[in-house]
Amino acid sequence: MANQIRELTCIRCPMGCQIQVTLNEEKEVVNITGNTCPRGAEYAAAEVTHPMRTVTSTVKVIGGELPVVSVKTAGDIPKDGIMACMAAINQVQVKAPVHIGDVLLENAAGLGADLVATRDVEAI
């Protein structure tokens, strides 16, 4: 048998479960153990085939009570797209006011997730 076992630390929540993922010769997931919730299994399966991450950063605000507003990708994006996503985030400028949940950039860098504000910044 050429099954391969990968050890992962789950990052879905702060518990940090140690998960074992078994892959077959076709690199398909055949077994997952060590997770304590379904989210862990989901994470592990994705992590060994197409790892995904949420990106959080800030965007420059014009005319606001603060110079920047915090943002996140509304969903996960491929891990190898993080820097492309950052480059796209760095292109964005918004005018105050900005509110939590405002979409500041749709489908950021074409990676499949919108960029949304995670706090309010009022205009001055």
């Binding site: 929540c13 702060p14 959080t56 950063s57 800030t58 995670t118 706090r119 309010d120």
Partner: peptide
């Protein structure tokens, strides 16, 4: 929380993953 802009907050309290400012809000 205002400066903890990363995510990972609220899974226990709100059953969803929030950033620090969102959790505070």
């Amino acid at each position: 929380l205002n400066q903890c802009i990363h995510n990972g907050f609220g899974l226990h309290t709100f059953q969803e993953e929030l950033t620090g400012p969102e959790y505070a809000a």
